[in-house]
Design a protein around this nucleic acid. Structure first.
Lengths: 136, 136
DNA sequence: AAACCTGTAACTATAATAGTTACAACAGGT
DNA sequence: ACCTGTTGTAACTATTATAGTTACAGGTTT
């Protein structure tokens, strides 16, 4: 299973989107809602910031979204957090002297790509706004 | 990323399907093609056997498929190897006193379920025979 | 200056994974 | 009966990913 970073990222972005008093949004406050360590939050926010999804100011509590929730697809978030770009690992160096071993890697890549594409399509179809609507 | 067991399972099943001299199929031989340890192979085969996909006889080399490659979907294989049934982990115990924290888990479950379903659909659509065709 | 914050590096703990060693039990040939 | 080679499993080890943590330099506000 993929790590929980994607979940944490969506949680953080939801919090920022729904909190009107931005000065309340310290990494410590956010960590309290997510139930993790403030550093974990700041680390994650660093990635989201690098992807241009939000701004922050060093030394000053408060984050602001740079993208409207309805324009922010979950796929964009996924790419922002630098999650794995493959679903299934393929074993290393199968035997090249074997008919199966010689071609299995490329074959599996093809199989997994179709699965991955289907997944991306789903993530593209859902936005942060959809998540916010369900949180009500 | 999910582990490489799924890849190894497909490799093993492909080997069994394409090898006519079944007595050649020892766990050691298969391990040589996959490039891993014979015990890893036997462990994996134990799962496939438990799922009714193949037979083996203790003490005697040789495995046989119990299902026609064209009737064996990759999804069936995936379930056989007991892979994770969720793609993304959801962080534990978000703060119940927070609007977001209170409902984020259930919301994410919904999101991830739609992604998972799309993935299963892709795996269901492809069979071991499709893989064999591409190995040619 | 004091209190509070961010950003980041470095370290630690835990868990998943794959690989490995070891061995009991079975099969087939001699 | 014995030897060789095999499966099925348990138990252990090594490696890696992940999350959590400590520490601290530097920014911001009062």
């Amino acid at each position: 299973m993929v790590n929980s970073r994607f979940s944490v990222a969506i949680h953080i972005l939801s919090l920022i989107a729904t909190t009107s008093d931005k000065s309340q949004l310290s990494s410590d406050f956010i960590a309290g809602s997510v139930n993790t360590n403030p550093v974990v939050v700041r680390r994650m926010i660093g990635l989201l910031k690098k992807a241009g999804l939000l701004t922050s100011q060093s030394g000053l509590a408060g984050y602001e979204l740079l993208v409207e929730p309805k324009d922010l697809s979950l796929l964009t978030i996924y790419h922002a957090i630098d999650g794995p770009e493959q679903l299934f690992a393929i074993h290393d160096e199968p035997n090249p002297d074997c008919t199966v071993g010689r071609k299995i890697q490329r074959t599996l890549e093809g199989v997994y790509t179709s699965v991955w594409d289907a997944m991306e399509e789903q993530l593209q179809a859902q936005t942060l706004q959809d998540v916010l609507d369900q949180l009500r």
